[in-house]
Design a protein around this nucleic acid. Sequence first.
DNA 1: ATGTAGGCCTGGAAGC
DNA 2: TGCTTCCAGGCCTACA
Length: 283
Amino acid sequence: MPELPEVETVRRGLEPVLTGHVITEALVNRPNLRWPFPERMAERLTGQRILALRRRSKYILADLDSGESLLIHLGMSGRMLVSGAMLGEFHHDHPAPAKHDHVVLTMDSGARVTFNDARRFGSMDLMPTDHAAEHPLLAGLGPEPLGNAFHEAYLIGRLKGRNTPIKAALLDQRVVAGLGNIYVCEALFRAGIDPTRKAGALSAETVASLVPIIRQVLGEAIEAGGSSLRDYRQADGELGYFQHTFRVYDREGQPCVTPGCPGIVGRIVQSGRSTFHCPICQR
DNA sequence: ATGTAGGCCTGGAAGC
DNA sequence: TGCTTCCAGGCCTACA
């Protein structure tokens, strides 16, 4: 579900509630999400101060003063609900427990963070902070798309010789970490690249053009998340999704937004996932 | 090694 | 209205 910009928005929304605060109670309502929770998770969280809240790809990491870090993945349908805290100018009372509330953290401030995930594709784990990068879910990840290690020469080298469609290559978290179906569709549209073209067959110039475009697409979405964060806080304290205007994603049958382009946005299926594209603009 | 389908779960929307 | 089918923004595993 949430891709990098949404996860970053959730991280920013949780930061004032979690960072520097102590978890006074951890309620764990089931033994697992996608995978089993770590042994004694509730005990290992209770009493811990959260020193920092970080993001790697689509994962959130909460560093605890025990020397462990809590890894949080929202999967496709994971949401965080903040209650009992002043959010902007509004105070949110604690809601009644809801279906799919799997983990509830109560903080020393009285604030509460509830992890709700209907589809249970999300996950949580605990590991030593100084070995977090070696966690199986993080070890194979490629560079952060907004970081310095993601640059033109890197992407050109990484896609060289790859026979897979560029759409699939950009969804490969080992190539670049944090892109999902939406932002890959949007980036390929802005770059004017046909999503079915083989990654290795693209010119170096074309591949290079993707780097600033990917940065731009994600950056704009994070900005939009920032403004919707205020709205969400004012509305209901829920963090997870935000409204954003897409140029091709989920616009099947609608006209291409490129001025003067007669194209109609199409939907094709690539490795089981929907790809939205303009058959005229994207070559 | 590389590329692609299948499966995990539930809920909402669309179709009949 | 109610039942059925399809679809979903992720990611791992198994297989060609």
